[in-house]
Amino acid sequence: MSETTRSRARRAHDLPLVAAARGATPERRPVWFMRQAGRSLPEYRAIRADHGMLESCFDPALVCEITMQPVRRHDVDAAILFSDIVVPLKAAGIDLDIVAGTGPVIADPVRDAADVAALPRLEEHSVGAIAHAIGLILDELPAKAALIGFAGAPFTLASYLIEGGPSRHYERTKALMHGDPDTWHALMGRLADITIAFLRVQLDAGIDALQLFDSWAGMLSLADYQTYVAPHSARVFAEVADHDVPRIHFGVGTGELLGAMADAGADVIGVDWRVPLHEAVRRVGPGKAVQGNLDPTLLFAGPDVVDREVRRVVADGDRAVRAGAAGHVFNLGHGVLPNTDPEVITRAVELIHSL
């Protein structure tokens, strides 16, 4: 059975995450956690003790193992492909590394039109390992668990390329955006090409849903987002719409951008902990599902607080559905923090499934 045929067969099982995203009634409330495959798990740390981050992202067996670890441990309703947003940039030939304690570091930052023109394109064969990994994951994934693929959105990729790495203020990014809009849009177009190509490889390999991470879009005003970012994210969503899978859009600190992010074309809008889910529906409009939005730090506050806050988010998710959301996918408002006790996550999943 091919990967695509296998994925269609899995979707016929009415995966809870897919059902919630499409406005159907899932057999249980779907839950997964951003960064669920990562440093909170001792089994992940054991692997990473002998393997670098980028090495792990391009090894199909390691990608499969790391992706599956939280599914086995927590009984979440989705696995998210273990990768990093800079993987397609690395695969395309851009000189970068992921430095422990820092994050992605770009050897030659993009600063002008000549730098943009020199950017390579992503060839499908260069991410063949990711397609292979997806096949391995689908062979192992439980029948009712979805596999979510992902990619970084063009703006977040652009910010890393321009700044040379993580940034607090994004001064170079915003300076290029406003000071040389032609070069900015050319860069965003090239990065949209890379993102589309990367997602298409994942879709052809059989993922059940995808998430576009615009991690740093919350640094922008609504006007800047609509002018300089939204058209390129919309193009990404449009170019992958021929694959019949739910499309999730997420950013941090994006409360003022939720409506514009929804307009870009996603089926599910990720909401961080700053905006209640029922308020997010008002900003997004009816007909789209919401995902979120427990504050990740509350997993450190003790069992009584976790119990109370999980119940609160579940109730707010139900309120969001009554307000017009297609469905609710439980998640954190951002990623699992490295020192989170895995047992707390497991107990939270059990509670969510019981409600």
Rank of each mutant, 00 (worst) to 15 (best):
A146R: 07
I162A: 03
G179I: 01
A205T: 03
A146C: 14
G265V: 14
V268P: 06
I130K: 08
A262I: 05
G189C: 10
D224V: 07
G259K: 14
V127Q: 02
A151N: 00
V127E: 03
A260K: 10
A145L: 11
H125K: 12
K174I: 10
G179D: 00
A151W: 06
E171S: 13
P142Q: 05
A205P: 01
G164E: 13
D224G: 08
D267H: 15
L176A: 11
S159Q: 05
S221H: 09
D180M: 05
P246H: 11
A197R: 01
G206Q: 13
T183I: 08
A146T: 05
T173W: 05
A143D: 15
F237L: 15
A158D: 12
S167T: 11
I137V: 15
L157E: 05
L141Y: 02
S215C: 03
L147A: 01
H178Q: 07
D244N: 14
D263S: 14
L147E: 05
L187P: 03
E124A: 10
S167R: 08
D204S: 13
H132M: 11
G218E: 02
I248N: 02
R247E: 06
G128C: 04
A151M: 06
E163Q: 08
V127F: 04
A186C: 10
G179Y: 03
F198G: 10
A175H: 04
G259W: 14
D182P: 03
T195D: 04
T156W: 02
I207C: 11
A262L: 07
A158C: 02
